[in-house]
Design a protein around this nucleic acid. Structure first.
Lengths: 177, 177
DNA sequence: TTCTATATGTTATAATATATCATATTTTAA
DNA sequence: TTAAAATATGATATATTATAACATATAGAA
């Protein structure tokens, strides 16, 4: 059981697992910023202070963050920030694969592996709101097979799975609910 | 090629295929209403004239329809309809599996098989906006396997695939784009 | 340096969704 | 059969999410 779990986590198809409560989140942010710098340099696009700040704010947790939540936090450093300030930065970050949008929550989450291009597959815990990002080939293959059989040309996959993560399940949060 | 396509379409895992332009859509609506009546009777819930009308409006096409689009159409028969009028009806229809919400479009689409409970898997054509509804066991299994391996308990799957349907591809709509 | 493209500021408004309380209708059950 | 309770709809207001449009500033290219 534990072994299967470890295999699943260590697998490259799990881009970002659920994080333990006590993990060093500052380190996550540092790594995300570094990866973003590297990605933007490669793309020849400018990773401005505003964009960096917005990325940091999205990374303020491993959970999805709303645009207006980002805006509110942003205002402590930029008093006159307005919705377009945030939405434009978010758009940039998405175009460069630095964040993903969770459609079912109208919210955004940092990408765990901006070096590699990939669509979004997410497990979202309904209790702690944390998100695990996947790039599961079996899911991708199943989708592609069916689409092919129907002559449908896939351009973008949105896979968002809501449920309860292992930690919350163990803690017994709302179990039967 | 054609054979594979037919197998895919006839398969029960394709709940509602892309519809040809010339199909008898009135018949689709009639069948959807009949299925809804039967479903609500089974559930012991009341399929009121308002709810019926809203369902008909969602079924006005095989594409996703926005809540305010439904509202506008609804107003020709109910002059004083307001947003809550529509949203409450949509909520009812979703609870009873008569429609699905397409998260990535903030829109709603009629369910092709309300008799059977299922989550949503959709192929959405970016050109003609039509939607094919799936209940693909391979996709479901791939998702469940990965979730199980991570100790994640799945409650709700959202699978929304954007791309180009076979018809639009054949017609050459925006092909290289 | 001047032109051009890119990025941000600023104001206004669009699009989507819900809260709340009032009224009407249906169902339950005494 | 009628009063109470539950359900459904009406009506108004407002919350939440997102974009349009135009002005200004800044960075790179010619």
């Amino acid at each position: 059981m534990e072994k299967i779990f470890q295999e699943a986590v260590n697998d490259a198809q799990v881009i970002a697992p659920f994080q333990s409560h006590g993990h060093d989140h500052g380190q996550c942010v540092v790594e995300a910023i570094a990866a973003a710098e590297s990605r933007c340099e490669k793309d020849g696009s400018s990773f401005t202070p505003l964009r960096r700040k917005v990325l940091e704010l999205v990374w303020s947790s491993h959970g999805p963050v709303g645009a207006y939540e980002v805006l509110e936090k942003l205002r402590s450093s930029r008093r006159n920030a307005a919705p377009p300030t945030v939405y434009r930065a978010l758009e940039f970050l998405m175009e460069h694969g630095l964040i993903h949008r969770i459609e079912s929550l109208n919210a955004y989450v940092g990408c765990g592996d901006p070096a590699r291009r990939h669509g979004g597959q997410f497990l979202i815990c309904r209790d702690c709101q944390s998100v695990a990002e996947l790039d599961d080939r079996a899911i991708d293959r199943a989708v592609t097979r069916r689409a092919d059989a129907l002559g449908f040309d896939v351009e973008q996959q949105t896979v968002e799975i809501i449920g309860q993560c292992a930690d919350c399940s163990a803690r017994g949060d709302n179990d039967g609910e």
